[in-house]
C-alpha cells in the first residue's frame, strides 16, 4: 500500500481544479448533496402533504407519479433529465443541474411517503380537535399537525439524505467532476494505485455518511422513535 498518490493529488480530490478551474472533487460532492437535500426536502414536504390532503383520483395520480420515480434506477433518471431538461427549457443545462434535478425528484418521492406516514401517525383526534376549535383544514395542518409530525420525520429525512450523498456519485455517468469522477480520472492517469485511490475515496464518503447517520440516531433517540 502506497498512499503517496493520495497525498500528491489531495487538493484535486478535495477541490477539483479549483481555484484555476471549476469546483470539483469532495467539495462538489458536498455542494451537490446540500442543494439536492434541500430541494428533495421541499419536494417531499409538498408531495407528502398533498398525499395526506387528497382523496380519490388526484391521490392515485400522485401515487402513480411518485411510484414512477421510485421504480426506476437513479442512472435512468439522470439519463432522462440529461436528455429532457434542455428540450423542456430550451437552454443548455449543466451536468450539475441535471444531477440535482434527478436526485431531488427521487429523494422527494421517497420523502413524500415518509411525510405522509408521519402525518397519518397522529391520532385523528388531533384533526377533530382542531376542527372543533374552528380551524380550517389548512390551518389545522399548519398549526396543529405539522408541528407534531415534523419531529417524527427527522430521522427518515436524514436517512434519505445519506442515500442521497451516496447517489451523488452517479453524477459520474454524465461526467460531472465530483469525487468519484475525479477518483477515476486520477486512477486512469496514474494507472498504478487504484486500490489506494478507491479506499481513500470510500473513506471520504464514509465520513460524510456516518456523520449524518450519527445525527439521525441522536435525533431518533431524542424523540424516542428508536432507530438506533
Amino acid at each position: 500500500m502506497d498512499f503517496t498518490v493520495v497525498a500528491d493529488n489531495f487538493s484535486y480530490f478535495m477541490l477539483g481544479a479549483w481555484p484555476d478551474g471549476p469546483l470539483g472533487g469532495a467539495a462538489l460532492t458536498l455542494a451537490l448533496s446540500v442543494v439536492s437535500a434541500l430541494a428533495s426536502g421541499v419536494l417531499g414536504l409538498v408531495f407528502g402533504i398533498a398525499l395526506a390532503m387528497t382523496r380519490g383520483a388526484a391521490h392515485n395520480v400522485l401515487l402513480l407519479g411518485l411510484g414512477f420515480f421510485r421504480a426506476i434506477p437513479v442512472i435512468m433518471l439522470i439519463f432522462w433529465t440529461y436528455f429532457l431538461l434542455p428540450i423542456l427549457f430550451g437552454i443548455d443545462v449543466p451536468g450539475t443541474g441535471t444531477v440535482v434535478v434527478a436526485l431531488s425528484l427521487i429523494g422527494g418521492s421517497y420523502l413524500a411517503h415518509s411525510v405522509h406516514a408521519g402525518i397519518l401517525s397522529l391520532p385523528p383526534g388531533q384533526w377533530q380537535a382542531a376542527a372543533a376549535l374552528g380551524l380550517r383544514r389548512g390551518q389545522a395542518l399548519r398549526l396543529v399537525i405539522l408541528p407534531q409530525a415534523l419531529p417524527i420525520m427527522v430521522p427518515s429525512f436524514i436517512n434519505q439524505w445519506v442515500a442521497l450523498v451516496k447517489d451523488t456519485s452517479l453524477a459520474y455517468v454524465i461526467g460531472v467532476g465530483e469525487l468519484s469522477f475525479v477518483a477515476t480520472q486520477v486512477s486512469n492517469r496514474e494507472m498504478v494505485y487504484p486500490t489506494e485511490i478507491f479506499l481513500f475515496v470510500a473513506l471520504v464518503y464514509f465520513i460524510f455518511c456516518s456523520t449524518l447517520e450519527l445525527c439521525a440516531n441522536r435525533v431518533a433517540r431524542r424523540f424516542g422513535t428508536g432507530a438506533g
Binding site: Y172, S180, P194, T195, F198, Y205, E213
Partner: peptide, 22 residues
C-alpha cells in the same frame, strides 16, 4: 457500517480496479 455508508459505485470501482491490483 462500511458497506452501508459508502456509495455502491465506489465499491464496484474498488472491486473491479482495486481488488484486481491486489
Amino acid at each position: 457500517s462500511v458497506f452501508r455508508n459508502t456509495p455502491l459505485l465506489v465499491q464496484l470501482f474498488f472491486w473491479y480496479f482495486g481488488a484486481s491490483a491486489l
